[in-house]
């Protein structure tokens, strides 16, 4: 059974910058990208977990995502202690 979350994320893709190298297709652990012809395309944006693998490995700056841990403990800790280090269990 496929697990789904809220479908909220900051993934953005600029097709004009894409060279079709295929790195995003390789690194995405949710298999969101697919090379179609000479360009990558996003097949299921709602699945993005904002891990940042695609944008870090896109040598052409075609992908941006505000990456970070999808972890409530980390969010709560960083929200409660602004400016100090957040704690999480990952």
């Amino acid at each position: 059974m496929e697990l789904k979350y809220l479908g909220l994320n900051t993934l953005e893709y600029d097709e004009k910058k894409c060279t079709g190298c295929g790195m995003c297709e390789i690194v995405c652990p949710l298999r969101i990208f697919r090379i179609n012809g000479k360009k990558a395309e996003i097949t299921a944006k709602e699945k993005c977990i904002e891990c940042g693998a695609c944008s870090l490995n896109c040598a052409f700056g075609a992908i941006t995502v505000d990456s970070g841990p999808g972890c409530a403990a980390a969010v709560l800790a960083s929200g409660l202690k602004k400016g100090s280090k957040a704690a999480c269990n990952c």
Partner: peptide, 20 residues
């Protein structure tokens, strides 16, 4: 269980912020 989000493979930071 909300904190289990950090142990899973399909949650995003943006989503977790909303959930909280």
């Amino acid at each position: 269980f909300m904190n289990f989000t950090g142990s899973t493979t399909f949650t995003s930071l943006t989503g977790v912020r909303r959930e909280i």
